[in-house]
Design a binder for these strands. Structure first.
Lengths: 168, 168
DNA sequence: AGTGAAAGAGTCTGATC
DNA sequence: GATCAGACTCTTTCACT
């Protein structure tokens, strides 16, 4: 499982840094950067993928370029009986939810929501509010990014199954 | 600038979906999926990159696998005179800040912070609190992810310059 | 804008140290 | 584990439509 000891070393770290920087870099390029042959790089990358250290490779796309101009964080307050499992189901019903997690503090969950515009966001919010367990939401609209190059400012959500087309 | 009309069509959307799903897919594979030759795919991808619709390709790495076990969202309250530009500088001083944005509501900014453990997080928080403009912070620790495969649950921050090694 | 061909890179497997 | 060698695939450019 995930219980095994350190599944990677400093060389692997350098390889991951190179792939985070450019997921389409060739193994030969990475090898030149870290001082290994392309074959050795491939084997290490394959192993990192098998161990689920690297979970995939994705393109970062500017949501604004795709017309997703509105973004917000939404605190969700649930009925006291709502378990995280039910919450996860609810979250999956709305493709506009880019990320969702349970958090400490008064709220039961924090959602990262993307919408094309304010009207669309309002529609999403109404849809979420009508879900069974949801009692209340508090929204914080994102005004501007202070780290414009982070993936969460720019990336669309990759899909484990079913394609990312629903958000493009 | 960004004022030009629709720089992409449905075919481009399908190509982007394919690349978001697997950034290392070959142009031939993508071509087979969307019904175009590999040459045509390459030209379209090159154009999407030039137009900054696609901003890059990155590996998604499970932070937990790298020992980044703690995560929180932090509301930041500033002295009234603090402009976003100064805030952005502050944010760049702390590599543990994975994302940062100005938001509506009482707080001036919302930070997404990753740390190796709670002690590390406390250290980061103290470091942020001693920055010039910062008056107060409120932290929401992330307990569990409801969408485990979203990039912001898994991705490390790609770097425009300087490499991602500081977070590995 | 898309296709097809051709040269140079890159990938990937198997053998070897 | 890493390297080397070979077959195969992909990338990239260019000429053509």
């Amino acid at each position: 499982m995930t219980s095994k000891a350190a599944p990677f070393d400093d060389l692997d770290r350098k390889i991951m840094a190179a792939l985070i920087d450019n997921a389409r870099a060739s193994f030969a390029e990475i090898g030149a950067a870290v001082g290994l042959s392309s074959t050795a790089i491939k084997r290490r990358v394959d192993r990192l993928r098998e161990n689920n250290v690297i979970t995939g490779f994705t393109a970062t796309v500017r949501p604004a370029a795709l017309g997703w101009l509105t973004e917000a964080y939404v605190e969700v307050y649930c009925d006291s009986a709502a378990p995280p499992r039910r919450l996860a189901e609810v979250v999956r019903n709305h493709p506009e939810i880019a990320a969702a997690m349970t958090v400490t503090g008064g709220a039961d969950a924090l959602l990262h929501v993307r919408a094309t515009d304010v009207e669309h966001f309002e529609e999403v919010l109404e849809r979420i509010r009508t879900e069974p367990f949801i009692r209340k939401t508090i929204s914080y609209m994102v005004l501007s990014h202070l780290l414009p190059d982070s993936p969460e400012a720019g990336a669309s959500r990759p899909s484990t199954k079913g394609g990312a087309a629903n958000r493009l």
